[in-house]
Amino acid sequence: MSLSLKQLKIFEATARLGRLTAAADEQALSQSAASQALKELESSLGYRLFSRNGRELVMTDLGEDVLPRVRDILNTVESLNAPYSSGVSGAFRVAASVTIASYLFPSIMADFLARYPDVEPDLQINNTGQVIERLEKQQAHVGLIEGPASHHQLQIIPWRNDSLQIFCHPNHPLAQQGVLSIDQMPQQRWILREPGSGTRAVFDRAIQQAGVSVKTVMALNRQEAIKQSVKAGLGIGCLSQLSVAEELRRGELVKLETSLELSRQLSVVVRPEIGSSKLVQAFLRLLDV
């Protein structure tokens, strides 16, 4: 049996990314070279790693079984490349929800790279539900999420507190008073995050607890789009206080006080089997979790 690192890497990348074309791009190979490497690996092993349905690749049971061992081999080889270093090096895939990715992650990663310059970060920005899915599919080492979550296979660790803020345009009828009562909420036009996001989950839970229903005129997956829509007078919004602090300070948006319970906990998500790796442990220490 003759196996190569190239073959193992293209198999692992295809399993993680779900597409051979994406794996080929990541490994800097042509699609034909990646396909050939995968075929050679299957030939050497004597069994199929993927079943093919047109262009779609579905991992076989044998592929699922061998994948953890292939990852162990690749991790061992990677550790041999820097025997005298701290051991904290190599590709580091982080999946983060939008607020964290925009307002917290840059300074965190700057600090992390200052300590461990051999780390190669790869940030994937998703909503909370999608971050969980990436961890399930082993497409990220660590997840950073904003919404409530539980999972029987993943470890979800409390990290830090945050709070949502309801806001409006300075010319909105509610702006001068700066207060939004529960009774006024159903009459408002709301511009909110999309279902599946942590921000939306916290808002929906608060509205449900208050016993009211609201009219969502737009559900958007980008904070900037929500802020610009509110600035255009299309309605009122609700986002993390982290994302609107600067606009509130400049007077471009106005904070609306409310009795809704809009506090939330940001969390770190890891797979138990990789939570003990030096790379992940170093990152968790930086986050103080």
Rank of each mutant, 00 (worst) to 15 (best):
E146C: 11
Q165C: 15
F167K: 00
A210F: 03
I145D: 00
A175K: 05
A206G: 10
S197W: 01
H169D: 14
L135G: 01
R134E: 12
P158R: 07
V212N: 06
W159F: 15
R160A: 09
V202T: 14
V179W: 11
I182Q: 08
Q153N: 13
S150D: 08
K137P: 00
E133D: 11
I166W: 01
H151C: 08
Q139M: 11
Q138D: 12
A206L: 05
Q165M: 14
L174D: 05
V214W: 03
V214C: 12
Q209I: 06
I156N: 04
V217I: 15
Q184K: 06
V179N: 08
H152Q: 13
H151G: 08
H169S: 15
E133T: 12
A149Q: 09
Q165K: 13
D183I: 11
F203R: 02
Q165F: 02
H151L: 05
R189E: 10
L144P: 02
L192R: 03
I132R: 04
A140Q: 07
E133Q: 06
Q177P: 02
I166K: 03
K215D: 15
Q188E: 13
S163A: 15
S163F: 06
V217K: 04
L164V: 00
V131E: 02
H151V: 04
I166A: 00
L164E: 03
Q139K: 10
G198W: 05
M185T: 01
Q184D: 11
H169Q: 13
E136F: 01
P170E: 05
L174V: 01
H172Y: 06
I132G: 01
N171H: 14
R160W: 14
I157D: 03
W190V: 01
P170T: 06
P158T: 03
A140G: 08
H152G: 10
V131M: 08
A206N: 01
Q138G: 10
L192Q: 00
E136I: 12
Q176A: 14
Q138V: 11
Q177T: 11
Q187W: 04
P170W: 01
D183F: 06
Q184P: 05
Q139G: 10
Q187H: 10
D183P: 02
A149L: 14
G196F: 04
S197F: 02
R189D: 04
Q177L: 06
V214E: 04
W159D: 11
F203C: 02
T199W: 05
L154G: 10
A175P: 09
I156S: 12
A149P: 09
L164G: 02
S197A: 07
E136K: 14
V142C: 07
V131P: 05
H172P: 08
G196A: 10
Q187K: 12
Q187N: 12
V214G: 04
R205E: 15
R189N: 10
D204H: 12
Q188S: 09
T216M: 10
A210Q: 03
G143S: 06
K137W: 09
E146R: 10
R200P: 09
E146S: 13
A201W: 02
P148D: 08
Q187F: 06
S163C: 12
